[in-house]
């Protein structure tokens, strides 16, 4: 099973002729992802790592029927690329681009929702269903198939947790990086719901960080709707208020969005929160044994 991406994923890469687009296309192909097409306006007719390139998403869709798109387009052009994919009817769009103005993301957020399209990101590492498909920039080798679903606002911190799980012999169903911006296409709650309904996922890891109230909303959702065990990790216990910690969304403002609040909200609904990334693996082992 897994969620969102698997063996049936037919991937389009937008920005495929760029340095990042080309590199990650190769990486995804090596992992076994079925990359069916690429788009770069003006580069139609070319091939990148054997993948045909089209000028528009509509042409790529007509010729190759992709059901997911990976957007590796620089920030000034990424919103347009996301909307082009949505307009062409691609149901899942994954955007890794960092640095999109938040008001642009807001516009795009509502635009893709209206079209019934799921956007993951922006400013995210993408997602992977180990052994099935990788639609992202994460290192494939650290993952192994298994029963744990992961949802995270971070990139390398997710790799850290995944690596700890894999080394502890605990595999993953799907790992989803939802992104570190203040506005993102898909929130914790929506991914939690998908994991709750995925028969292959037996436990869930939620990796949050300071800023906003998405972790608190996730805690409330877990209380009401999630019966599978959840383990948490929150980064930024030592972050000072009023300063952005790298991610545009990682800021404690007006005394809200602290790690302490988020940890308390999760613990209040029975979610154990690890003090360090490696401890996540220990806590997951424990909850899996209890099932």
């Amino acid at each position: 099973m897994a969620i969102l991406v698997d063996d049936s994923t037919r991937l389009l890469v937008q920005g495929i002729t760029g340095r990042e687009g080309s590199f990650h296309t190769q990486q995804m192909l090596e992992y076994g992802t079925n990359v069916v097409a690429g788009v770069t306006p003006g580069a139609g007719g070319r091939e990148v790592h054997g993948v045909p390139v089209f000028n528009t998403v509509a042409e790529a869709v007509a010729a190759t029927q992709p059901n997911a798109s990976f957007v590796a387009v620089p920030a000034p052009f990424a919103p347009d690329a996301i909307l082009e994919a949505a307009e062409a009817g691609i149901p899942l769009v994954v955007c890794i681009t960092e640095g999109i103005p938040v008001l642009e993301t807001l516009r795009v957020y509502h635009g893709v929702r209206e079209r019934g399209v799921r956007l993951i990101g922006p400013n995210c590492p993408g997602l992977i269903s180990p052994g099935k498909a990788k639609v992202g920039i994460m290192p494939g080798f650290i993952h192994t198939p298994g029963p744990v679903g992961i949802v995270s606002r971070s990139g390398t911190l997710t790799y850290e947790v995944v690596w700890a799980l894999t080394r502890a012999g605990i595999g993953q169903s799907t790992a989803v990086g939802i992104g570190g911006d203040p506005v993102i296409g898909t929130s914790f709650i929506e991914v939690l719901e998908l994991f709750q309904n995925d028969p292959e996922t037996r436990a869930i890891v939620l990796i949050g960080e300071i800023g906003g109230a998405d972790e608190e909303a996730a805690a409330e959702f877990i209380r009401q709707h999630v019966t599978k065990p959840v383990v948490g990790f929150i980064a930024g216990r030592t972050a000072p208020p009023g300063r952005r910690m790298g991610h545009a969304g990682a800021i404690i403002s007006g005394g809200r969005g602290t790690a302490a609040e988020k940890i308390a909200a999760l613990e209040a609904v029975g979610v154990p929160v690890a003090e360090r990334p490696a401890q996540v693996a220990e806590l997951v082992r424990r909850v899996l044994e209890d099932i």
Binding site: S154, L157, G180, E209, G236, T238, G246
Partner: peptide, 28 residues
Amino acid sequence: SFVRLNGTVGCIVNGAGLSMATMDAIQL
């Protein structure tokens, strides 16, 4: 991305989330 703090352990990390987690581990 750099934010100056008051401690004594300098950090060089790749990734924002991992940077925060590294700071937290230092304090832990």
